[in-house]
């Protein structure tokens, strides 16, 4: 698929569809690294402010690129559903706060976009979701439980919008809620 056969021969696969890429990001059970990032030109957001309820972290490569736009636009529509689990959603990319502000206004987004801008990609690196070759974060999703432990994570191919179904299933499991 996305790996060369040479790479595949070196790296043992651990299950169907898994491979080095899937295993790369910070795994389930890890303590979610703390962060404090700007979400507006003069306002920061810290992970610890959000704990006590589930937190969805959506790392994405860049504001404005068509796929990210669709993904963030989709999550924007699913906010009421996320809210029914009392979950907080934060989008994170290496874009600057001004870029985020323009993007959020253009897409009418109603959730915070955190700017992992200086030092660039520092938080993405902590979650092992940084792409050195591209200088952007991966398209990676994390659901963090109320105690700050990663309960679910997913690394999507950069060009594929991962949708919201995986997030909602993870929230179901966390909260014992069934599909409704």
């Amino acid at each position: 698929m996305f790996m060369s056969s040479f790479a595949q021969s070196l790296i043992p696969l651990t299950g169907p569809g898994s491979g080095v890429k899937r295993n790369k990001i910070l795994p389930v059970g890890s303590v979610a690294p703390q962060f404090t990032l700007f979400v507006t030109p003069n306002q920061t957001l810290s992970l610890r402010e959000l704990l006590g309820r589930p937190v969805i972290l959506a790392f994405y490569p860049a504001d404005w690129s068509p796929i990210c736009g669709d993904q963030m636009a989709l999550y924007n529509e699913v906010l009421p559903e996320f809210a029914s689990y009392r979950a907080a959603l934060v989008g994170i990319s290496v874009d600057s706060v001004w870029c985020h502000a323009a993007f959020a206004a253009a897409r009418n987004l109603h959730f915070p976009l955190a700017s992992d801008f200086e030092p660039k990609g520092q938080i993405a690196r902590l979650y092992r979701a940084y792409r050195d070759a591209d200088g952007t974060s991966e398209r990676a999703l994390f659901v963090i439980d109320r105690n700050g432990i990663i309960a679910w994570s997913y690394l999507s191919p950069v060009a594929v919008n991962p949708g919201a179904d995986g997030i909602l299933e993870a929230l179901d499991k966390l909260t014992g809620k069934t599909m409704g």
Partner: peptide, 12 residues
């Protein structure tokens, strides 16, 4: 319709 779609992985 919308919520069923989200659950089925509709992504756009």
């Amino acid at each position: 319709d919308f919520r069923g779609g989200i659950r089925s992985g509709v992504n756009g």
